[in-house]
Design a protein around this nucleic acid. Structure first.
Lengths: 338, 338
DNA sequence: TTGTAAGCGTTATCAA
DNA sequence: TTGATAACGCTTACAA
């Protein structure tokens, strides 16, 4: 029979370690924080005592005294979108390496949630804030971010350019990626090509749309505004926009969708209407979701680089990466759909 | 030209509020923490002063003094699985209502990551830990969890039964859900039916498999172990297991998959082999992923209840829900695939 | 190279 | 009903 009683064991403090090692608390603190100027004998005695007691410094006490904590807040546009979930995973791994905690905050694409977070943020002694959303920010939120920077909080924008506001930004090259995909479709003789994605309310979306337009123009084609469908992120939006276009009798032989979710919705609408993919209509998405390869037809998509983005964020937090703007290149992952 | 200078404004402390209201710091603290026994005039003066200064208590100082913080850690099996992302979103909403912070920790299905977290957890002054994974836990981790409970940390298991260890558990009825789905397939004349899912290493998987077996037995069918495919969670596993089964020439007219991801992989393998879904083979998944309705064929799946689960967790944290085991019912969401 | 003591901001105890 | 004071655990000036 297992022993079900649990002793409440008081956690060791610096004082306990100090007593065991026969030194003062100050010495323990200094040695455990990596101070070099100590006799080897002392250092070893302290480290051994800490190990033996299983001492772990109390983060609350430490951050109260130091005036700064050990956590980074990651604000994501929508944790249920694969892109943000992947980013969360990679950011967590990168920060863990640095000994930092990750506080994930799901914005659910709501301005009110961002504002709420930013209002409560100053009290939290955050080391940094990584804002990962493509939604355009209201002025007051940018002001709050700058206010936090003034309190020594490192602010980094991910997937959105805020460098014009003095905020370090890490982005992927949406414009050239969209151009790349559009050109690939044109090379395969696809025309007309529709653009499906969020344009208003997302700087990134607008950039993608611009890449699409530029590719068409450079190939000598006119841009037909009836083939530019402004839709939000999720499956339903892709489905609805495509279904409506079909109902209106619009002609197109390819769709460039601004996310894999939108692309999936679009493909469903096409198939429901009896159009084959990629036979009648080719479809390309953005984000290279992990399910893209297991769709039938499998989904051609523009690559996403969460590991690289996280690495750059890490560099900025460590003070190694300089400069306000960092860009990662996307490439085309070709599969069946386009 | 906008003013780019940022003033470093010191955040107000209780002392500042006290000075402005003409009372002591202790009074401010008590009133702001909801103490009733004060003259209305004082209360109003203090609240007004706090509002005016935009006072927000420092969580580090507070948790140092109180011995307990305001955050809950949510440990998820894999943040990139839709089920856990959805759970994260709902948990965050529920905890926010309670004024608690959410610390998300992605286990990536690795025991080492869980152990690492649990070892560092005691120092963090967590209010609670919600462990959301179906992976079976090693003994030492359960010991660590019980040790945390002894330190007044509320521990709640989600999607896994740990009530036999005295840990409050919130689960969905996997056994009857699997039985329900299997019975539905049988009613439609589907036989033989294969089971695809993680069995070893997941108590939940084993329960689902048992539900499948029971449904077959109750209908008077023998259980063919060659049709039980032990595979992990992701798309690839579903694809591979199904492709191998087809290659071996196994006969089956339906697959009950333990997750929507596995189901998608299975459908891809079936279609690649020229089998139609649901014509030749019906497929049912678990989790009712948001993309399930936008697949073609759209995916029949067993419902998932993140909002209800989060609500129960909230109840437990608030001390309203009693009992060690809480169960939410799943139902069958019927679509094209099965 | 090491120790003493002060202080981070809050809340709880005790006294009035 | 309110105030003074100590204490939470740690780090860092200042002293030695």
């Amino acid at each position: 029979m297992p022993d079900d009683s649990i002793a409440i064991v008081a956690r060791p403090r610096v004082a306990d370690v100090a007593r065991l090692a026969g030194v003062s608390a100050a010495t323990v603190s200094r040695i455990l924080n990596g101070s070099e100027m100590f006799a080897d004998a002392t250092r070893i005695r302290v480290q051994e005592a800490a190990r033996q007691l299983g001492f772990q410094p109390d983060p609350a006490a430490r951050s109260l005294r130091r005036g700064q904590g050990d956590s980074i807040a990651l604000l994501v546009g929508d944790i249920e979108q694969g892109v943000y979930a992947g980013l969360t995973r990679h950011m967590q791994a990168a920060l863990e390496d640095m000994g930092l905690d990750l506080l994930v905050y799901d914005l659910a694409h709501q301005e009110a949630r961002l504002r709420r977070f930013l209002e409560r943020a100053p009290a939290r002694r955050l080391r940094g804030i990584v804002l990962a959303t493509t939604d355009t920010l209201p002025e007051d939120c940018i002001g709050l971010l700058r206010g936090l920077m003034a309190q020594q909080v490192k602010v980094i924008a991910l997937r959105q350019r805020l460098d014009q506001h003095g905020i370090a930004s890490v982005i992927q090259d949406e414009h050239s990626a969209a151009k790349l995909a559009t050109a690939a479709l044109l090379r395969k003789g696809r025309m007309p090509i529709a653009f499906l994605g969020r344009i208003s309310g997302s700087l990134m979306g607008a950039e993608r749309c611009e890449g699409y337009r530029d590719a068409l123009r450079e190939a000598g084609h006119a841009v037909d505004s009836a083939l530019i469908w402004d839709a939000s992120y999720r499956y339903r939006a892709g489905f609805t926009a495509t279904a409506e276009a079909l109902q209106r009798g619009l002609a197109f032989s390819a769709i460039l969708a601004a996310s894999d979710e939108l692309a999936l919705g679009a493909i469903a609408a096409l198939q429901d209407a009896g159009r084959s993919v990629p036979g009648d209509v080719a479809v390309i998405g953005f984000g290279d979701a992990d399910w893209a390869a297991y769709q039938r037809p499998s989904l051609t998509s523009l690559s996403e680089h969460p590991a690289e983005l996280s690495g750059i964020v890490r560099g900025i937090l460590e003070g190694k990466a300089t400069g306000l703007l960092h860009e990662v290149k996307r490439h085309l992952v070709e599969r069946q759909s386009g």
